[in-house]
């Protein structure tokens, strides 16, 4: 972690394809300590693929990734000690209860019992999930599974949080809790990479945003910088996003067509 103070994560010329689909096409970016870095993009843009590569969950193809100055392909254990990851879909062992799950996690991470217990109690209370502690994960609702994932990512105070749409399924209150936690995390010098579709959230929370489309980063910077790029001072992120991904025209078009169609088929 001492090797590169300047960047927690650096990605250079990363490319990954699945068969003929180029999911990630030659992208580069850096995430600095104390920074919340957002990845925005339409469905299938390559956000999840990028994130999985950073974690070393997909075989690397082209380009270079450094996390804390280490290569996720070889030093994944060292990297994972200091990362908290929330995946796109909460795939937790269905046949375990949160109790078994967190005992397992704490054991693998070699964490202190009493300290972890304290944190865990705190998190479960904040997310109002205490009553699910002995239920099978399979029976939890989507949002509650997501909470388990989020808690599992936070429990060891990692330096870097990587969250793939962490707010999906969470109710307003829990979403607020997560946002607060991310802010605190940042204040303590930690970094966050997170992908989202919710533009307001990105606008509100992210220090810098990368907009991805069809595997490429088409724009990157603070919200102000991005709004300059579209020559619209004070534009909100939605305008910027649609403009940059060339969707503003097509959205108008779609909306018009929809109107027409629905008018024709008026319910009698």
């Amino acid at each position: 972690m001492t090797t590169e103070k300047s960047a927690m994560v650096s990605v250079t010329n990363l490319t990954k394809s699945f068969g003929t689909v180029v999911a990630v096409n030659n992208i580069s970016f850096e995430v600095k300590p104390g920074e919340i870095f957002g990845i925005l993009g339409p469905n299938g843009a390559g956000k999840t693929t990028t994130i999985k590569q950073i974690l070393g969950l997909l075989e690397q193809e082209q380009g270079e990734i450094r996390v804390f100055g280490l290569d996720p392909g070889t030093d994944d254990i060292e990297i994972k000690r200091n990362i908290g990851y929330v995946s796109e879909d909460p795939l937790i062992y269905k046949s375990m209860t949160p109790r078994m799950l967190f005992n397992f996690i704490a054991s693998i991470r070699g964490m202190d019992e009493s300290e972890t217990t304290e944190k865990l109690q705190y998190y479960f209370e904040s997310f109002e999930a205490v009553e699910y502690y002995d239920k099978l994960v399979a029976t939890l609702s989507r949002g509650n599974k997501q909470k388990m994932q989020v808690i599992a990512a936070l429990i060891h105070d990692p330096l870097l949080l990587i969250m793939d749409e962490p707010l999906t399924g969470l109710d307003a209150k829990s979403a607020k809790v997560v946002k607060e936690i991310l802010d605190l995390h940042k204040e303590r010098g930690g970094s966050v990479i997170f992908s989202t579709h919710i533009l307001e959230v990105a606008e509100e929370m992210c220090d810098r945003i990368a907009i991805m489309d069809r595997g490429k980063i088409i724009a990157m910077g603070t919200v102000e910088e991005l709004s300059k790029m579209v020559n619209k001072v004070g534009a909100d992120l939605e305008d910027i996003f649609l403009k940059l991904t060339n969707q503003d025209e097509s959205v108008n078009h779609i909306v018009k067509n929809l109107r027409n169609m629905m008018n024709c088929n008026k319910r009698s």
């Binding site: 967190f102 704490a106 054991s107 070699g110 217990t117 865990l120 205490v130 009553e131 502690y133 002995d134």
Partner: peptide, 15 residues
């Protein structure tokens, strides 16, 4: 079965 905060306890083992 009611679960209370105090019931949340971590027990670790070797890996």
């Amino acid at each position: 079965k009611e679960v209370f905060v105090e019931d949340i306890k971590i027990k670790t083992n070797g890996p």
